[in-house]
Amino acid sequence: MATWADVERIATGLPAVQEGTTWGNRCWKVGGKTFVWVRPLGKKDRADLGDEVPDGEVMAVRVDGEGGKAELLLAEPEVCFTIPHFAGYSAVLVKLDEVDETLLVELVEDAWRVMAPPKIRRDHGLQDT
């Protein structure tokens, strides 16, 4: 079971990360771009999810395009999900209470890589291979 403290530790351990807010919710940014954020579910989200509404906290993470999104949703259906509001948007929602530490690290680090500007990745030896 992950916590926001775990997300903070992982995100802020990455290069050039700043904590901030987006739409009044806590988020982590690199190069001014949000890559991980708290994503409460609104009434419409809950209605869209029906019986599938998670009980706990929800985190959103950026992913590598629609293909990356589809792969992640297929590979981790117990933890990762989406809502109609995210249609066409390269991000998935994560059940924070159900994600294990290994997957959490992978999700946050991958989201950072997707959003980090090339100069930041190069400056920290993390350029694409």
Rank of each mutant, 00 (worst) to 15 (best):
T3M: 09
T3F: 09
T3S: 15
W4E: 05
V7S: 00
R9Q: 15
R9T: 15
T12Q: 15
T12C: 14
P15L: 10
A16F: 08
A16N: 13
V17K: 03
E19C: 09
E19N: 03
T21P: 00
T22K: 09
W23R: 06
G24F: 09
G24I: 04
N25G: 00
N25T: 08
N25L: 05
N25W: 11
R26Q: 07
W28H: 06
W28D: 06
W28E: 07
W28P: 05
V30A: 01
V30G: 01
V30I: 03
K33A: 02
K33N: 04
K33E: 07
T34K: 02
T34S: 07
V36R: 00
W37V: 00
V38C: 08
V38N: 12
V38A: 10
P40S: 01
P40Y: 04
L41S: 00
L41Q: 01
L41F: 03
K44E: 14
K44H: 08
D45I: 01
R46S: 09
R46E: 14
D48Y: 11
D48P: 12
L49H: 06
L49A: 03
G50I: 09
E52N: 13
P54Y: 09
G56P: 05
E57Y: 05
E57Q: 13
V58A: 02
V58R: 01
A60W: 09
A60P: 08
V61G: 03
D64K: 10
G65M: 11
E66Y: 00
E66P: 04
G68M: 10
K69Q: 12
K69V: 02
K69G: 03
K69N: 03
A70W: 04
A70F: 05
A70S: 13
E71W: 12
E71C: 00
E71Q: 14
L72N: 02
L72E: 04
L73T: 02
L74S: 15
E76V: 08
E76S: 07
P77Q: 05
E78M: 09
V79S: 02
V79D: 08
C80R: 05
F81K: 02
F81D: 05
I83Y: 01
I83M: 09
P84V: 01
H85I: 04
H85C: 02
F86V: 01
F86Q: 07
A87F: 11
A87R: 15
A87G: 05
A87Q: 14
G88V: 01
G88Q: 06
G88H: 07
G88Y: 06
Y89T: 12
Y89E: 12
A91P: 03
A91W: 06
V92E: 03
V92K: 01
D97E: 15
D97W: 03
E98T: 02
E98M: 07
E98R: 13
V99G: 03
D100C: 06
E101L: 08
T102Q: 14
T102V: 14
L103P: 10
L104W: 06
L104Q: 04
V105K: 14
L107N: 09
E109L: 05
E109H: 12
W112C: 02
R113D: 12
M115F: 02
A116P: 13
A116I: 12
P117D: 04
P117R: 04
P118M: 10
D123A: 15
D123R: 14
D123M: 13
H124F: 14
H124A: 13
G125D: 13
Q127R: 14
Q127F: 05
D128H: 12
D128P: 00
D128I: 11
D128N: 12
D128R: 15
